[in-house]
């Protein structure tokens, strides 16, 4: 029971990070981006590559920090991956979504996002192989923070939670303390009014993709540390991310954070009741329940 609670919060923190970018894109660009989850894969595999390169150049960086299976190299690699993933998101927007935005309706963009997801996912498989990968082969089972059979906690898991919360905290500060953050919230609320107040939409759209991509990369790395990297991790996560965004209410960053935890907890508690095989269906049930009970989510506005 308490293990399910901890696991749910842990997975939830990763989902929250991924869902923030998704909810911003869905709200500001007005389409459900089914390729968003692939940005988690892009970020994770970028970090894997950078981590290997950095560790090769400066082996001292590759030493694991304390009881964690994370190294300074991985930390730096994650930052670089966040930047690269953000830029990848901007590039994809320029290649595909921006062109469709001008000529086609939002649902055409949803269509295209499925195609983009297929291409991204399978390109990753082509480049990195279909097999799963891990950031480190070192087994960190040796030390446990809690080895009570009712609650097993690995140091890595606490690290993941702290990093995820720190990333969300940083975003919160940007959104509530900087005029750039006000501008982003303004565009989310009312793009026309934002424009007449001097905010250039194209640069805000770029910012949205960079934030969304960056957070997705961090989420992807954390997911990779907790589980493992696989080219289909995006496919496995996409529905959970949508569920988190919908439960929270589209456009609400706070909602997406909370939604991530709700979906994480729902999934971890559900396997106490249902066979594990049904787990992939849980996010769908969360979505359906939300749409029936509170269609605009916890913090969403009717539109």
């Amino acid at each position: 029971m308490i293990q399910a609670l901890f696991d749910g919060v842990l997975v939830g923190s990763i989902l929250s990070l991924g869902a923030i970018g998704l909810t911003l894109v869905m709200h500001i660009l007005r389409f459900a981006n089914f390729s968003h989850a692939e940005l988690l894969s892009v970020g994770a595999y970028c970090a894997l590559t950078f981590d290997a390169a950095l560790s090769g150049i400066a082996p001292v960086l590759a030493e694991l920090i304390g009881p964690f299976s994370m190294s300074a190299a991985l930390a730096l690699a994650t930052l670089a991956a966040a930047v690269v993933t953000g830029l990848t998101a901007v590039l994809i927007d320029r290649l595909v979504f921006r062109r469709l935005r001008d000529t086609a309706g939002p649902l055409t963009m949803v269509f295209a996002s499925f195609g983009v997801a297929l291409i991204m996912r399978n390109l990753i498989a082509l480049v990195f192989g279909l097999q799963t990968e891990r950031f480190t082969d070192a087994i960190s089972f040796a030390t446990m923070i809690s080895s009570d059979p009712l609650l097993l906690i690995k140091p890595d898991q606490v690290g993941i939670l702290v990093i995820a919360l720190a990333a969300m905290g940083a975003l919160h500060l940007v959104l509530t303390r900087t005029t750039l953050g006000f501008a982003l919230r303004a565009v989310a609320e009312n793009p026309t009014l934002a424009q007449v107040n001097g905010i250039a939409l194209p640069s805000m759209i770029r910012l949205t993709w960079i934030i969304g991509g960056g957070l997705a990369a961090v989420a992807g790395v954390l997911y990779g540390i907790d589980n493992q990297l696989s080219p289909v991790m995006g496919r496995d996560l996409v529905l959970s991310l949508f569920a988190a965004a919908i439960v929270g209410g589209l456009g609400s960053v706070t909602g997406a954070m909370l939604g991530g935890f709700i979906v994480g907890l729902a999934s971890s508690f559900a396997i106490l009741l249902l066979p594990a095989g049904y787990k992939p269906a849980i996010p769908f049930l969360v979505i359906l329940a939300t749409l029936y009970v509170r269609p605009n989510g916890l913090f969403g506005e009717a539109r």
Binding site: M26, F31, A32, F34, P106, L107, V110, V238, L239, F242, A243, I246, L250, P280, A281, P283, F284, L285, I287, L288, L291, P295, R303
Partner: peptide, 16 residues
């Protein structure tokens, strides 16, 4: 609802 909700819900039912 918003039209892309149906996209998400139908994608979800396929997974389910």
């Amino acid at each position: 609802l918003r039209h892309d909700y149906l996209a998400i819900a139908t994608f979800g039912i396929a997974v389910a």
